[in-house]
Design a protein around this nucleic acid. Structure first.
Length: 259
DNA sequence: ATGACGGTGTGGCACCGA
């Protein structure tokens, strides 16, 4: 099976591209971030016509996440239980597969603006809460994938300018420590399970010909628990949609699992 | 040092993203 994540930067604008991508890449799971629309405007019908179920958690203008799935999802959780959050950033659900239940956690992680700001503090509190909740989730759901826009550059090789951007947002030691803490829960970065081209990124700035110059960051990730890591067969970034006429600034990331 | 690009909202622009 294939599971994918894509920050679409407004589903209202990107819906035709998402549907076209799904037709060309009929993945079993597509985790979407930055819907930028409320639940009453979510296009469930369009996904149903394409052969998909959908569950969403949106809000006006900012944030918003959804899970698009071939089979119906159950046990849907919105945001991090016990963490009071005005922003819609997490949706989790379970799929029943021939290999057993598969828990999906889709997150639009906090950006954080800059170290020392209120937004950065919020990012740290949000990451603390996520980590505690995921530890419990992993106890309850051995087959778990944590996927989404992490807004964290895990290592220097995941940035177009690791020296110039050292210590700046998405690159700080604090953010990277949180990423490693997630791995320490028993998760693996599926992208690094396989050989990859150098300078592989998942986001490029709209400005200054960022994509054309491949000045990007790898901030969209699919982390797999141990039973899923054992059956992982590939993980790739699909750069093609970034070349569309009206692209998201992010590209989809796709992981392939046996069974 | 700044702004560049794109999306949203209700605007004559500001805010936010990464």
């Amino acid at each position: 099976m294939k599971i994918a994540t894509w920050n679409v930067n407004s589903l209202a604008v990107r819906l035709p591209q998402v549907l076209a991508w799904l037709q060309a890449h009929p993945v079993d799971v597509l985790a979407l971030q930055e819907l930028k629309l409320t639940d009453d405007k979510f296009p469930h019908d369009a996904f149903e016509l394409a052969g998909y179920h959908s569950v969403c958690f949106g809000q006006k203008t900012y944030n918003g996440v959804a899970l698009i799935t071939r089979t119906a999802a159950r046990d849907v959780v919105r945001n991090i239980p016990g963490f009071d959050d005005a922003q819609a950033r997490v949706i989790a659900a379970t799929l029943d597969t021939p290999s057993g239940p598969l828990r999906l956690v889709n997150g639009y992680f906090v950006n954080g603006q800059a170290p020392g700001t209120d937004k950065f503090d919020y990012k740290m509190r949000w990451l603390d809460a996520l980590q505690g909740w995921l530890q419990r989730e992993l106890g309850a759901h051995p087959r778990l994938a944590l996927m989404g826009d992490f807004n964290i550059v895990p290592e220097d090789r995941d940035s177009y300018d690791p020296v110039g951007l050292q210590g700046t947002i998405l690159h700080t030691n604090e953010e990277r420590a949180h990423f490693r803490a997630l791995l320490a829960l028993g998760l693996a970065d599926s992208f690094r399970l396989f050989e990859q081209p150098e300078q592989s990124f998942s986001w490029w700035d709209y400005r200054m010909l960022g994509f054309q110059k491949n000045r990007g960051l790898r901030i969209d990730h699919i982390l797999l628990s141990e039973p899923l890591t054992a059956v992982a067969r590939a993980c790739t970034v699909d750069r093609a949609p970034r070349k569309n006429r009206q692209p998201s600034d992010h590209a989809p990331v796709v992981a392939t699992l046996d069974a």
